[in-house]
Nucleic acid binder design. Structure first.
Lengths: 191, 191
DNA sequence: AACAATTTAACACAGTCGTACTAGAATGAG
DNA sequence: CTCATTCTAGTACGACTGTGTTAAATTGTT
């Protein structure tokens, strides 16, 4: 039998290389050749893992969602609902390089998804996950609020989260973003 | 003297053609050739107005800012502060095709600005304008709040606005977005 | 050591990109 | 009508793109 390769590990390495290219040079630079060079692979090897560029981009988005979801799922429960909410929401904010990269990937490919059906599906899955997270946070903080009010708060929280993500990429300080988010979370728990 | 051409009108026509291409096919499709074809012009004519692609993209962003600012400036004052605030903020939301196009341009090029210094400067000017608008809205609704509180509300409003813009592009209904925004504006006026 | 399966390297193809140049068409002023 | 000036069409160049294909190198098993 031939050279044995851990394909899953390789796929992740390729995706991470693509992330680096995207963060460094923008979405337009994520070409098969650039990513292969960044991953120190032949373009043909990359094509075994991802036959088309579209597959690669979708994998970029999907792995980002998987990673973030895993981190949130791994959080230890906390008794304080506000602290728990902030911990969960904070996993979607760029407090370290890892999360900063993921957020940029999410936002950049989210825009690309506006004119790419394949990306659109992957993006909607992640978007739905964030929506569920927001709904669960709202439910835990304002359990007694009427349903329509919770729905509105969920939309509000979701938009705030994505808006802060955008501003963080454009240079907003993580402190300011965290404070803004915390203030809204607190207002939910009081209402 | 030769053919007389209204250069400003032509530049705007070119930029609008570029907008159409960007909205229809994404930012990657905004090439000199595609835009020239969309504007029914020779590529050489386009190059007279915008010598480089970067110039064209910057103009796309700048004209968008100019148009939106002009619309906001042209609003008739209203006695009701909440109504005035919603009218001003609403000018940044896609309630018609015109605004929808502009919002998409703003968001798409805002992402492109993350890895393009020329675009970055143009984007920051518009971003600063929106920030000023948010600050003025907050000031008119919560004149008695302490300064730090107003600063936080401004950041909150700004993030909410951009987050809703993103969600609107991804299919959120304008009604839901308007309701969410109105609810926050109302909460500002009560506090 | 020899085989077989997989990975890699290298190249090829057709297309588009930004940018540049040149020759000719169009047109307002005299 | 003529001229001067501007605009346009067309072409060209080198670089890059996604996608294939083919031959050679690599390596676990027998």
């Amino acid at each position: 039998m031939p050279k044995l390769i851990d394909h899953q590990a390789r796929e992740e390495a390729i995706v991470e290389a693509a992330w680096r290219v995207m963060v460094r040079d923008g979405a337009a630079a994520v070409s098969v050749r650039n990513v292969a060079a960044e991953a120190d692979l032949a373009t043909a090897s990359l094509r075994r893992a991802f036959p088309s560029q579209s597959d690669l981009l979708v994998a970029c988005l999907t792995l980002m969602g998987t990673r973030a979801e895993a981190r949130i799922r791994a959080l230890r429960p906390r008794p304080d609902a506000v602290a728990m909410a902030m911990a969960q929401l904070g996993e979607t904010m760029p407090l370290d390089d890892q999360r900063r990269v993921e957020m940029k990937v999410y936002v950049v490919l989210g825009i690309a998804a506006l004119s790419d059906p394949a990306l659109r599906a992957a993006h909607q899955r992640i978007d739905a996950g964030i929506e569920r997270l927001c709904a669960s946070v709202v439910a835990s903080l304002s359990p007694s609020a009427p349903r329509s009010e919770r729905a509105r708060a969920t939309r509000h929280l979701h938009a705030l989260l994505d808006g802060l993500a955008l501003h963080l990429l454009h240079g907003m300080s993580p402190r300011a973003a965290t404070n803004t988010l915390r203030q809204y979370v607190l207002s939910l728990s009081k209402a």
